[in-house]
Design a protein around this nucleic acid. Structure first.
Lengths: 388, 388
DNA sequence: CCGATCTTTTGGAACGATCCAAGGAACTCG
DNA sequence: CGAGTTCCTTGGATCGTTCCAAAAGATCGG
């Protein structure tokens, strides 16, 4: 009955594991949180924050009045307002939003959890999210998971303790929806971006979902290669157990089917979604006899790796072999040759995600939205190779 | 006497400008904050957060006891602990760190303010910061400024209201230290990264400073080109009013001086630190007669732009002209030709920055630290061109 | 001058946690 | 048996804000 482990995470990354509740040998004494209390308050007394009460005392009105002035209520008389505002300025008052949020049972932050900021796609996305949230007066709580579901659980637990108004989550690969739902509960609005974790009960929670038009994008790329005359086209890279890879493969299959071509399993090649592994696995394209003349790649990193791998075999992408990518990372435009790929404007996606989660915060009860965002094909030299 | 404008920023980006306090024509009535109150609490009553009191009631103990159990104090009796823990799990309790922080007058977040997440250097840096902060149990409050000092003021004000334990700030170009200090006050620990704003009274505040070894790095690159036989070397890109550009120019001058070569002003060429502008201004290198044969570029973006500009003039970097960059962004390794540049491992810098700000949070009174982080020269093909 | 109305101000109880001093129960010991 | 110890538990004040109901002034008509 204690199947699912529930963990509460405290500051300094300390995990109080409730399942240990049977161990009575003081399993908890080792938790160092109380040590903190032994330290005197690190801030000197003079460093105390200026509060409403200080202002109120300073100009002889009540806290309530100062609060009203602060929030720009029309109630206070004009000269009271002036006096209070002068005092605010004089003492250098800084609003304590945490206290206000506590009282109002409201939150002014949104958590953003991404796998990897060093991926330019996510970095742009994060920039977009932060811009839009900031404009709406919200603050972004950042969390990154490095594609590790365990880290993701920890990060989410920690973020939840900060009571975000909503969560924008680009799940780590292999994350489990049930585990997520256990940590996130059913009440905080969640927008799942880009990837669909397994075992999510979409109906139980009202989670929104926003993903690129993976299927359509891959179909566009494949169709483009077909137009150039290619008939043996590989799908190169990614793991078949990630939802985005599966969707892209579907699009690839769609386009082939429309051209009356059957999908050949040996032309579906898996790699880690990194440049390095893609380069290393290039040879797998050429083991079967009529070798493919083109490849739709899982994403740009894979495509760049493949182009590297081709070069080491004496082939040049765009001349001897056609390559397409996915994401349009900045490098795609300046690689040699420049990479044909699918652009999705990740910064705009970030805006979109932020806008939607705020909308959901305002209206928690409307039905969940499953959205897909359009991508467009950017044709560059890497797909110029044609079939004579 | 009201020279400096002081602004208080409220949610939804509304600015209550205290200098308007003279306008009595209800300048404030337009502030829509009160509208919010008219909406009923958007969350259904059942969505209420589970609190300590709920748990206490649920298993017949006092709030204080539950709190002790939560924090892993050795005080509670073993069976009490078990009962409480069962109840915590049963009700799906989520710790409210904001409330705890309020009582404890402590903060568990650190603000990170960067110009531009879409710059891979800062993205990596942010990832490093978040990793290290997360490991220490802190949450990252993200803010981005898009290089605009005005946006930076707004963002910082908003972040300050969330009471961060410290701030890691990579200042927007052209930010003014005095304005920053006015908003940040003198008590919150600040770590200034990468760039030095003008007019900071470093002695008044205890701000730490962490920057790349700009001067030494540029000297390394220049020295490298000198070794290859170049004598006319330009410094290309950046604005002379940014501190990092000035420092890099100093290093460039150092190396030239060591080789007994005078700096020629016409070889100092300014550009915006972007690929595009650098490409556009390439011609400026070749207006004087013995034209330079090599250029030390302000950063990688500029260097990549310069290589593009050279190509349109029929020259190839690495063959006809030697180029070096700064930052070692991922593209540098895969451009054609690959770019000689200075690497600084931004992710590790992020760790370092986070570690230092936490150290400062623990010891607010030790002297401010001014640190510079080493860079190393990565030699690639773009600087291969030699003087016959 | 009194009550009615309107405008402005206010004290005190929240919000969800922690801290503290004090209380009760169970033991021990002389 | 009563005092002292140890172990565990607790009520109430507190953090900095907002909300609410009600008080205090001001204005006015009759």
């Amino acid at each position: 009955m204690l199947q699912c482990r529930m963990q509460l995470i405290f500051r300094a990354g300390i995990i109080l594991d409730l399942d240990r509740s049977n161990n009575h040998e003081q399993p908890i004494r080792s938790i160092p949180i109380l040590r903190r209390h032994k330290q005197p308050d690190p801030r000197p007394v003079s460093a105390r924050r200026v509060t409403l009460t200080d202002i109120a005392r300073g100009c002889g009105v009540s806290r309530a009045t100062v609060s009203l002035v602060l929030r720009g209520s029309p109630l206070p008389a004009a000269d009271t307002r002036t006096r209070v505002q002068a005092e605010l300025k004089k003492q250098g008052y800084v609003y304590n939003r945490a206290a206000a949020n506590l009282r109002q049972r409201r939150s002014s932050s949104v958590a953003l959890v991404v796998n990897d900021l060093s991926n330019p796609f996510f970095a742009e996305f994060a920039a977009g999210v932060d811009e839009a949230l900031g404009a709406a007066g919200y603050v972004t709580l950042l969390g990154s998971t490095s594609e590790s579901p365990e880290r993701q659980q920890r990060v989410l637990t920690s973020l939840m303790e900060h009571d975000p108004a909503g969560i924008i989550l680009s799940p780590a690969e292999g994350s489990d929806g049930a585990q997520l739902q256990q940590i996130l509960g059913t009440h905080v609005p969640v927008l799942v971006f880009n990837r669909e974790p397994a075992h999510v009960q979409w109906t139980a929670s009202h989670w929104d979902y926003l993903a690129l038009a993976n299927r359509r994008g891959a179909a566009l790329a494949t169709h483009h290669l077909l137009e150039r005359g290619h008939r043996r086209i590989a799908f190169f890279g990614g793991h078949a157990d990630s939802s985005s890879c599966r969707e892209r493969r579907c699009g690839y299959a769609d386009a082939l089917a429309a051209a009356g071509i059957a999908v050949e399993p040996e032309l579906l090649i898996e790699t880690a979604p990194t440049r390095l592994d893609a380069a290393a696995r290039t040879a797998a394209l050429f083991v079967h006899d009529p070798a493919p003349t083109a490849a739709v790649c899982y994403n740009d990193a894979v495509a760049l790796g493949l182009m590297l791998g081709l070069a080491t075999r004496g082939m040049r992408a765009g001349r001897d072999f056609a390559v397409t990518g996915f994401d349009d990372i900045p490098e795609a435009a300046v690689s040699t040759p420049p990479l044909t790929t699918l652009a999705s404007d990740p910064r705009a996606r970030g805006h979109q995600a932020a806008t939607r989660i705020l909308e959901r915060v305002r209206h928690p009860d409307i039905d969940a939205v499953r959205g897909s965002v359009p991508v467009r094909l950017i044709i560059r030299a890497s797909s110029e190779a044609t079939i004579a």
